[in-house]
Write a protein that binds this DNA or RNA. Sequence first.
DNA 1: TTAGGGTTAG
Length: 633
Amino acid sequence: MLRTKHVLSFTHKALFQQPRFLSFPSNAQLVLSTHSHNTHLREALLQMALCNHDIDFQGYNTLLIWCVGKRAFREGQRVHAHMIKTHYVPCLYLRTRLVLFYNKCDSLEHARRVFDEMPERNVVSWTAMISAYSQRGYASQASSLFVQMLRSGTEPNAFTFATVLPSCIGSFGFILGNQIHCLVIKLNYEANVYVGSSLLDMYAKDGKIHEARGIFECLPERDVVSCTAIISGYAQLGLDEEALELFRRLQGEGMQSNYVTYTSVLTALSGLAILDHGKQMHNHLLRSEVPSFVVLQNSLIDMYSKCGNLTYARRIFDTMHERTVISWNAMLVGYSKHGEGKEVLELFTLMREENKVKPDSVTVLAVLSGCSHGGLEDKGMDIFYDMTSGKISVQPVPKHYGCVVDLLGRAGRVEEAFEFIKKMPFEPSAAIWGSLLGACSVHSNVDIGEFVGHRLLEIEPENAGNYVILSNLYASAGRWEDVRSLRNLMLRKDVTKEPGRSWIELDQVLHTFHANDCSHPRREEVSAKVQELSVRFKEAGYVPDLSCVLHDVDEEQKEKIILSHSEKLALAFGLIATPEHATIRVIKNLRICVDCHNFAKYMSKIYGREVSLRDKNRFHRIVRGKCSCGDYW
DNA sequence: TTAGGGTTAG
């Protein structure tokens, strides 16, 4: 108490009685920053400062800087109120400070009000307001404010460009972003590393990675942010090998990496599903000085689960000191993708019991899809109804309905799925009809399948996949006339299926397969194997996974049927189908990876021995884009 | 006074 009294007395003197020796602002700043941890004292000091009726520019400025630094909303509001009460007319500089202060204290409305009431504005005040929107993800507000700024005749600077460009997303955003790029060139800000990073990131997000790379290569100086932006650009587009290659090169060139860089690198590693490399990176991180932020740990969970090692993923999850909803979602998605429905439900229960983090839309999607893959359709339906009745406070979105259709369809409850679609509170999308069509195809429900198929052909006549599934469905019912007319329709409409490719390495030789492929020298052997497996699947009583169907069609038809990606993998499996070799590592497309996992399960049952996808020594690596057996093509 | 890159789902 004595000490507080002493300080107060000193402060009073310092602030008001000795202005010649110690000016007001420097003292206010000194005293406030020294004692800012003491709320009562802070209050008293501010009170005293505001008792002064003649606070000048510097005084207000100092107080506001202090409020911004401490994110002291109430105190800052009082400073603002003091200006109004004493009829002080703040200059542009101080008004901008107020905008910055309100923005820092998360009060966008107040910031905007101050901004709107500005009698004049300069590039800094415009940029501050654009930044307030941009930081909060209000992209359209940020970009439209930028356009208003240009119309007002204010010339943007490097800060403005670096601020507005991240808000140039979506189709309209990218168009604006391209125009802004022109302005950047015109005003000669191309060489600015902040502007360059924002620009290249925008192009990468628009899928124009070559543009992005061009900008990166032209930057006269690079830093950790610009390097991370280009690496993450590749990773987010699924160009994982390129991302890693660049990361290695830049590290060689002495690039500094931080936790954001590693997060992007882990994304690339997840895509490649190379567990060994992922582990190496994890080891490297443990030994390095890089702080283990939640985002990085989330990436590690994702990497391990996509590489098939759920134990490691769970270990990271369990040892986290703080978890965000993304941590929970990443773990749930991991279990879900691997068909571990029980674990999905257990973890979801734990999440709700802990009640520290609220489930979001992605959480429910992960849980529903986990139930779907794990054969727990009743549980899945319960969760869906918990959501629609408000027991789980997540707003249902069309994707949740899509999950339910998939869940019922996969379980063979095709009629129920059909009825469910009819009762949905929105118009069913092509994706939802497509999901049901897939279910009809697997469970040979020709009646519903025919209806749905034709509906789909109306909605998206250009999607070759729908023709193919419907055609396969007709084929399975022996309706060859309908198969033929569908094929003719495809020819008339000039619809072709983009040939996907699968790669598999066997004894150091790379075999690749694509749609309609009959060029493999051992094709007949493979076909025979697929036939044999197909019979065995049926004998084993398996209902194959939706995307892992081996169609039972005769040889003549097989020539014409366009095979799905997973079927090509099945062909590849047929080539090497012994329990010892029936392990596979799939790069890039996780869906296929899951298919293989299920495939391994079927194989295990057929051969009566465990066929594991997780045994790294038996993995056959599929190398993307580097075919070593050119003869086959 | 004002600035850029990052994690889950689809």
